[in-house]
Design a protein around this nucleic acid. Sequence first.
DNA 1: AAATCGACCAACCGCAAGTCT
DNA 2: GAGACTTGCGGTTGGTCGATT
Length: 296
Amino acid sequence: MEAKKEEIKKGPWKAEEDEVLINHVKRYGPRDWSSIRSKGLLQRTGKSCRLRWVNKLRPNLKNGCKFSADEERVVIELQSEFGNKWARIATYLPGRTDNDVKNFWSSRQKRLARILHNSSSDASTSSFNPKSSSSSHRSKGKNVKPIRQSCKPTQGFGLVEEEVTVSYSSDQVHDEALRLPDLGIKLEHQPFTFGTDLVLADFSDSHDDANQQAIIPFSPESRELLARLDDPFYYDILGPADSSEPLFALPQPFFEPSPAPRRCRHVSKDEEHDDDVFLHDFPADMFDQVDPIRSP
DNA sequence: AAATCGACCAACCGCAAGTCT
DNA sequence: GAGACTTGCGGTTGGTCGATT
């Protein structure tokens, strides 16, 4: 059937398809994706094949491996520098793809937005609830609820899930209020559980912390702005807000990111046998099992 | 035990841009 | 130079899984 011949397969890849794709790359290199379909090897589009290779089959990928603390830091820093240039950011993270970085960031943003939303909701209710703990520790040194001596932050706000412990004494509660840069906003810990217990308060109209009894909920605009912060809280939690010292040094890109706009490089027929130029992007031992391309 | 929720991930889509004919 | 083709990128969606209620 003609229609069947033209049918393009979508959805999850099977192991057999992966094998076909890997064999193609072994033979021809990571290019000519469209020929995979035109040769009838797979009923996948070239785009789909390329994506599968880049995101899953490429050697030395850190598949199924969570972002380390260092990687998180790099992503956060580079995102603030480059914006949503995931492919470029990924070049600084060996074994990570642009999709990985994008997913990580997206997930993080969602989490952040949700936390902020919850927090502002909590704030708006607790400010009118005398029983609520959120108002109980607002006055310096008074009615400060006992807090845990340490807490284990969740992944939220760019914190890592590893054993990062932040300890506070009860006297520090108020002073440890976290500042959001440039927004005149403080982020205060509720009894030190990250996430839903965070309380946001707007202190922009006052310079007297001790008088801050009420929690002012954010406007939707403010919340949106917060959700889009390039550098949401990371430094504020792990480092002093006024610190000019970088918390870490950025690594060099794994692949040199091209300053010019990204572009694929079509390989001419002549170049095709030019010492496998494309292989330079891969570890030397990657194609140990590859049949060498015969020279003409 | 079932339902719900959130996190994570794979894959698709549309668009932009380089290359080829 | 123009149009077709190919590739790469960023945004988005939908599925799966584990934790929580």
